[in-house]
Write a protein that binds this DNA or RNA. Structure first.
Length: 374
DNA sequence: AATACGGGGAC
DNA sequence: GTCCCAGTATT
């Protein structure tokens, strides 16, 4: 990476003053969050897993539901995986849930949980950030968190003009400075304060410099253009398309459940793709699609076209193809988008077949009923 | 070092 | 549409 700039040197030299300003602000202005109420190692671990690449607001309802169902490491370790995945349904990045499950089983097998960042980082799903967060918060370990918030704050404090290819590269580059600034006596609060500052004051757009507790340390504020930092290369979005099949027979819906060893969606259900069913897409496109939806993930934008299965076609259940009765859809774990889309399609059909509601056309209603009857 | 993971909120 | 969020695992 680039050498340390003079701005970073000056900031590190003021570390004690910086910590005092930051922690005084945090003591007065931190948000009340459920994992800060009667904090415990377990709450910290669960919250940090959920917060990987996910905003606080999104996590809140999942965290409450999770803690109610699985209140401690022992309960999580003893839980069957389908329950764990079900509790994670809709939160995305499902390997986090499977890793957290494995981690709980590893922790309860130990005489005591590890207390150092290095030891935690050997556990599944725990990288540099999560190890620092868990051990600084729970054990006052001297490990600095470097997440997106911290990168943004440090890039602005030092007005760092370095163009970074991505946030991971930037995080690595800022780790020495974050470590130099870390409070040696309140590392957990310091780490949380930095992230709190990024989330509530040092916004990516329109930062609130006038109320910032460390504005006097900030070179970007002095420059007048704090939004110019950090400099990150723009992401290139790749478009993809996939055809899904809606196949319903005798009140059951055919779903694809990815293998436990699959890279994506291990043990998660989705509508099967035409390829997974071995259906020729040209046959499917002879009728208008039931729906077309777009989902997005990191650098991909995926348009999914959902088509009705050919009426004459028959499919057998297998390891990865399962018939799920509509009445039992709630019991399986679907991806968030497919949970939503399937609900929308069923609701639209119920609406169309209700006498009180308008029907688009008799023929389409008849076709849907025929499909439903198998 | 790159890329996959293939989610979702806010603008 | 765009950006990026309390990142990690894999190659």
């Amino acid at each position: 990476m680039t050498r340390k700039t003079s701005a970073a040197d000056a900031l590190a030299a003021s570390a004690a003053d910086f910590q005092h300003a930051l922690l005084t602000w945090f003591d007065a202005h931190q948000r009340r969050l459920p994992w800060r109420d009667a904090p415990s190692l377990y709450k910290t671990v669960v919250s940090e897993f959920m917060l990987q690449q996910t905003q606080v607001k999104t996590v809140l309802p999942y965290f409450a539901r999770w803690l109610a169902a699985l209140p401690d490491f022992a309960a999580l370790a003893a839980a069957p995986e389908p329950q764990v995945l079900k509790l994670w349904e809709g939160l995305g990045y499902y390997s986090r849930a499977r890793n957290l499950h494995r981690l709980a089983r590893a922790v309860v097998a130990l005489p005591a949980p590890p207390r150092t960042a290095a030891a935690w980082q050997t556990l599944p799903g725990v990288g540099p950030y999560t190890a620092a967060a868990i051990t600084s918060i729970s054990f006052a370990a001297p490990a600095a968190c470097v997440d997106g918030n911290v990168v943004r704050i440090l890039a602005r404090l030092t007005a760092d003009p370095t163009p970074y290819r991505d946030s991971a590269t930037a995080a690595k580059a800022f780790t020495p400075l974050a470590t130099a600034l870390l409070s040696p006596v309140r590392s957990g609060d310091h780490n949380q304060a930095m992230m709190e500052l990024g989330a509530t004051v040092c916004f990516r757009a329109h930062p609130l410099c006038t109320v910032c507790p460390v504005f006097s340390f900030c070179a970007a504020r002095r420059s007048g253009e704090p939004e110019q930092f950090p400099r990150l290369a723009p992401k290139v979005i790749e478009r993809r398309a996939v055809t899904r099949v809606w196949c319903e027979r005798a009140g059951a819906l055919l779903l694809h459940r990815a293998a436990a060893t699959a890279r994506r969606f291990a043990n998660i259900h989705e509508l099967p793709t035409a390829a997974q069913l071995g259906v020729d897409e040209t046959v499917l496109s002879s009728h208008p699609p039931l729906a077309q939806r777009t989902r997005a993930i990191t650098r991909f934008s995926i348009t999914e076209t959902i088509c009705a299965a050919p009426a004459a076609q028959r499919y057998s259940a297998s390891d990865e193809l399962v018939w799920v009765p509509l009445a039992e859809l709630e019991t399986v774990t679907l991806s968030g988008p497919h949970r939503r889309w399937i609900g929308e399609l069923l609701a639209a059909r119920a609406n169309a077949s209700s006498p009180a509601k308008h029907r688009p056309s008799p023929s389409s209603a008849t076709r849907r009923r025929a499909s439903a009857a198998g």
